[in-house]
């Protein structure tokens, strides 16, 4: 159970309020879509949950532990339970696909051993299995930048799965992909959500994807939570509230 309480983030130079007193709960195993315009605070919200960005005030409770107060060691343990998938995949291009996937275990590996690039055999087996699972088992030895966009995002998902995550944060995972690939990636996330019971927080731009995959939607506008409910509840009126009165629906 993830509980976000009065979360506020003010970027220090300029004083932009990216998140303004955001409060909501995410029950375990939910597929939650986060929607809103670009710059509405979706990315900031997701990055506050694993403290890639330090929130200004508020609390984030993960199974009762306040993440915002965790020190470096505690944060390492919290982060390794939260996988993250990025819009631009964020793979290390020059490393092999396998090394990229194994990097998901770094939170568990003793830092001293990772200096000499030593992973336990079990982890290597596991990485190969995860690659099989996302359908690119034959690409393990290739360089990450030799893969197409859709394949790179699958490597990103495999990397997140290596963490044995309780939660996956997906920051616009399909925004750089074509519609066919977008569905394929979303189906992988759905499978992880349904089969493994992993909570998924996924920020999305297209409402048809939200309707198709999400259990629940929260919407941000200018850092404020403007909607929290079922995807089917987003009618034209709600839509205008979320995206502004000049917006028109596409797809």
């Amino acid at each position: 159970m993830l509980s976000i309480q009065h979360l506020t983030k003010i970027y220090s130079p300029g004083g932009v309020k990216a998140l303004d007193d955001v409060t909501f709960d995410v029950p375990k195993g939910q597929f939650l879509a986060v929607i809103g315009l670009s710059g509405s605070g979706k990315s900031t919200l997701l990055r506050c949950i694993n403290r890639l960005i330090d929130p200004t005030s508020g609390a984030i409770l993960l199974d009762g532990q306040d993440i915002t107060r965790a020190n470096t060691d505690e944060m390492r343990r919290v982060r390794r339970r939260i996988g993250m998938v990025f819009q631009h995949f964020n793979l290390v291009h020059r490393s092999s696909v396998l090394t990229n996937v194994l990097a998901g275990r770094l939170g568990y590996i003793n830092p001293a051993w990772s200096l000499i690039n030593r992973f336990p055999k079990a982890d290597i087996e596991k990485a190969k299995k995860q690659l099989e699972r996302v359908g690119i088992g034959d690409k393990a030895e290739q360089r990450a930048d030799a893969l197409s966009g859709g394949q790179q995002q699958r490597v990103g998902i495999a990397r997140a799965l290596m963490q044995d995550p309780d939660i996956i944060l997906a920051d616009e995972p399909v925004a750089s992909l074509d519609p066919v690939l977008a569905h394929s990636i979303m189906q992988h996330l759905e499978k992880i959500n349904k089969e493994d019971g992993v909570t998924v927080l996924c920020s999305l731009h297209f409402l048809d994807l939200v309707h198709r995959y999400a259990d629940r939607v929260v919407a941000l506008n200018n850092g404020q939570l403007v909607f929290d409910g079922l995807p089917s509840e987003i009618d034209d009126k709600k839509f205008k509230e979320i995206y502004g009165k000049d917006a028109e629906r596409v797809g």
Binding site: N50, L52, T72, M75, R76, R77, V78, R79, R80, I82, G83, M84, F86, H88, F89, N90, L91, V92, H93, S95, T99, A103, G104, R105, L106, G107, Y108, I109, P111, S114, L115, N117, G156, R159, M162, Q163, L169
Partner: peptide, 22 residues
């Protein structure tokens, strides 16, 4: 590129590991 560093930090890797792998 900052992306891989961000990604590895998110996995729980510490600073040393981030430098070695990203």
């Amino acid at each position: 590129m900052a992306g891989p560093i961000e990604a590895l930090t998110a996995t729980g890797a510490n600073r040393l590991q981030t430098i070695v792998y990203a």
